[in-house]
Amino acid sequence: MSIRLQDVTYIYMSKTPYEKAAIKKIDLEIKQGEFVGIIGHTGSGKSTLVQHLNGLLKPSSGMVHIDGQNIHEKGETARNAKRSVGMVFQYPEHQLFEESVYEDIAFGPRNLGVKEKEIETRVKKALDFVGLDFEKFAKRTPFQLSGGQMRRVAIAGVVALDPKYLVLDEPSAGLDPRGRDEIFGQIMNLHQATGITVVLVSHNMEDVARMANRLIVMNKGEILLDGKPKDIFCNHQAQLKEAGVDVPPLTLLMNQFKQRGLEIDSAVVDIATAAQNVYKAVRRG
């Protein structure tokens, strides 16, 4: 079971002077149960790439299979394959359209034929997932919410679909620090509890490093690196720089300690462990 891209190229404004190959000859297989992080400079093709995972964009050349099904064939099976992918867009307001928060989240499951009683349960669970109080928010109009609240409703709408593959394009933009931590925590829990496949596009290296078990670095429409996050952050810093990707702020800080002569393992992704390492190194002298 997997999403598989074979030799996928996508060209925007094809056959015009503005023609732009946003991704080039991408071969990629995302297996069920993986947690894949995607990073890269703005314009490197991340959003274009993930929009192929649910057939939102059709490759200019190449093929996309979900669980063995070519998703650009006609018919019910291809449609169902696409539906197994839930996608949170980069701009959440593009995803909201109903009169109330409740209806907005209920729309997707209802379309999938979920029964009305089960829908209410799902809406409640989804709002809880994103840290919004049901009583307070269910009847509100999605367009009259704060930016971060809107983002949360957009995520809830996709979680309520209970997708097999969950794709999130910069989901933390506009979330406050606790909201970001809690929602990412929820995604981690969901991943661990249900084995849901997660694809996360993020500028926040720390989040990717902490959560993903596989990291893909995009550069100019191509996959530059594909491997374990720790390995990439520690051993490929030059290539990351070439791709215009910054290493996590914590890694930078640890590098500075190293330069001052502290003997520490800089390959850590959480502050608590990092502080312990520095403390021990200082005590050793």
């Binding site: 620090p177 606790r178 909201g179 702020p249 914590l250 800080l253 502050i271 403390y279």
Partner: peptide, 17 residues
């Protein structure tokens, strides 16, 4: 529900140690 810069939190952890 907010956060502090990495250095501030790091310093805080070191003080706790």
């Amino acid at each position: 529900g907010l956060d502090v810069p990495v250095a501030a939190e790091f310093a805080y952890r070191l003080r706790q140690l």
